[in-house]
Each structure stands twice: as structure tokens, then as C-alpha cells.
């Protein structure tokens, strides 16, 4: 199969196949003390227009799972198992093949926005380049799309700020710039890795609404990684709970929040600090 035809067939969904199906995904890294498996046997699926929330302990492999889906694991990392987009296997494809999908069909909002933006280029350049790579067209047209996207993520004065550099924005603004970058191509799947950690609750609510609107309009599927259980309960249709690289529990959001089975999930929900009761000392979660 030639490269172009391989890439083209990926865009034709296999009948009945879900948007994203991950089966028995494992990720490991070589370390000085032998290979370390940071994700073990994770399986989940995301249908069009739905959101999968991934919650779990810090370091439990949430980011690595999403990077494995994108084929962007750090140097040395290897993924085994199966990742299928519309029924087409993505694992084991070359960078060239995946290039057609990345940005266009699957977009990702990375966890650490400052280091994820190139300090040498204005955000305008960084938003428009993705658009132009996949849609072509003039710089002016791409710029218009970018300004619109910035406006949607509530960056004030977008036609001026588009020419600013990443370091001239606040942490939460950079996070929203990453989101703008992801949504301006209206991909089939958006993977958001802790996209709202620097957003105050009012802007956060606006951004979550924006994503929900997008989902309604274009049927975008979402993987939403967060540690904020209240946010997950709001946005997710299904939830995957991870700990130490293992899948602890998986189910519909309602099921996870009303009838959690795994002790870890229960402990998480118990330990959740509530705005209404100021504990002096937090309960914490016993592993």
C-alpha cells in the first residue's frame, strides 16, 4: 500500500467502527533498572460526539496513553496493543502516514502549555501553520480562522494578540491558545490533557461550554484527561480511572460517581475537597 493510499483509507471509516478504539495498550520505557511499563493493558473506546474522561493518580500514565494514541511517545517509549481510528490501526504506522491524521483528524492539547509552544514564533504563526498544512489556502484566510478560534477561547483583543509571543501570555491564556490550535481544524477527535488546570472557574466553564458546543455541532469525540473530578462529572460520558499504569475501573460517568466499585475510586471520591467544607487537614487517600 502506498503512503498516500494508506493515508486516504484512514479517512474512510470502516462501517460500524467506533471513532477510537484502544485495546490492550501498554507503554514501556527502557530505564537503567530495566524496562519500566508505565501503561499496562489499557482498553477503552470513544464514540463520535462523546467524551471519555480519564482520571487518576499523578504519574499513572494518563499522558502516556494519549501520546501513544498520537504516536508521539518520547524517545525510547514503545507501545504495544492496538489503537484504531474508525477501524484503522494506528500503532506501527510511520511518521509520514500519521502526519495526515495528526492535527487534522486527531488534535491534542498538551499538558504544559508554555514549554509546548515555540518561544521563537508568534502564536499566530503557530496556530495558522497547522491549518495551512492540512487545508492549504492563503495566509490571510488561515489568520482569519485563527483569530476566530482565539475569540472563541475568550482571548481578548485577538487581532492584536495573535502577533504576540507565548511568553507574553498568562498561563491560562497559553492553555486556551493550545485549545484554539486544536479546534480550528475541527478534528474528529480531540485529546485534552489537563486543559483547564490554569483556568479560573468562570473561564473554565466557558471553555467547557465551547467544547460541548463543538461536539454538538461537529460530532467531535473527546478524550478529556483531568484530575478534577467535578469537571469530569460534568463533561464526560464515560470515565476511565487509572492508577500506577493500570486501569482501575471503567464505566459510564453516572456509574463511576454513584456506584464506584474499585477501592481507589471510592477513596478518590471520599477525599475530594469540597468548597463548602473547609477541612484543616485533608484526608488523603491511602493507597
Amino acid at each position: 500500500m502506498s503512503i498516500t493510499s494508506a493515508a486516504r483509507t484512514i479517512s474512510i471509516p470502516v462501517v460500524g467502527a467506533p471513532l477510537l478504539e484502544v485495546e490492550h495498550l501498554s507503554v514501556s520505557f527502557p530505564t537503567s533498572s530495566g524496562p519500566a511499563t508505565v501503561v499496562r493493558d489499557a482498553s477503552f473506546r470513544v464514540d463520535q460526539g462523546t467524551t471519555l474522561g480519564i482520571v487518576g493518580e499523578s504519574g499513572s500514565g494518563k499522558s502516556m496513553t494519549s501520546l501513544a494514541v498520537m504516536g508521539l511517545l518520547p524517545r525510547g517509549g514503545t507501545a504495544t496493543g492496538s489503537v484504531r481510528l474508525f477501524g484503522h490501526e494506528l500503532l506501527g504506522r510511520t511518521d509520514r502516514e500519521l502526519r495526515r491524521i495528526r492535527g487534522d483528524r486527531i488534535a491534542m492539547v498538551f499538558q504544559d502549555p508554555l514549554s509546548s509552544l515555540n518561544p521563537y514564533y508568534t502564536i499566530g504563526v503557530q496556530i495558522t501553520e497547522a491549518y495551512r498544512a492540512h487545508r492549504g489556502g492563503s495566509q490571510a484566510a488561515a489568520r482569519k480562522v485563527a483569530i476566530e478560534a482565539l475569540e472563541r477561547v475568550r482571548i481578548a483583543d485577538p487581532d492584536r494578540r495573535i502577533d504576540h509571543y507565548p511568553h507574553q501570555f498568562s498561563g491560562g491564556m497559553r492553555q486556551r491558545i493550545m485549545i484554539a490550535m486544536a479546534i480550528c481544524l475541527e478534528p474528529d477527535l480531540i485529546i485534552c490533557d489537563e486543559p483547564t488546570t490554569a483556568l479560573d472557574v468562570t473561564v473554565q466553564a466557558q471553555i467547557l461550554d465551547l467544547l460541548a458546543d463543538l461536539q454538538r455541532q461537529t460530532g467531535t469525540g473527546m478524550v478529556f484527561i483531568t484530575h478534577d473530578l467535578a469537571v469530569v462529572s460534568r463533561v464526560a460520558d464515560d470515565v476511565l480511572v487509572m492508577k500506577d499504569g493500570d486501569e482501575v475501573e471503567r464505566g459510564t460517568t453516572e456509574q463511576i460517581f454513584t456506584a464506584p466499585r474499585a477501592p481507589y475510586t471510592r477513596a478518590l471520591l471520599d477525599a475530594l475537597p469540597r468548597i463548602d467544607d473547609p477541612f484543616e487537614t485533608l484526608k488523603g487517600v491511602q493507597a
Partner: peptide, 24 residues
């Protein structure tokens, strides 16, 4: 990390190198 972002956008390898890696 920004090189990862550039790749995540689906830019072709030579643009990723020319634009994002060269100048820094």
C-alpha cells in the same frame, strides 16, 4: 516539548525541522 507540538499538528518533517528546530 514544542517539537512534539509541531509534530502533533501534522506538519511535514522538513517544515518541523526548518521552522521549529533550526531557529532555536
Amino acid at each position: 516539548n514544542f517539537m512534539r507540538t509541531a509534530r502533533a499538528k501534522g506538519l511535514d518533517q522538513s517544515l518541523v525541522m526548518r521552522r521549529h528546530a533550526l531557529r532555536p
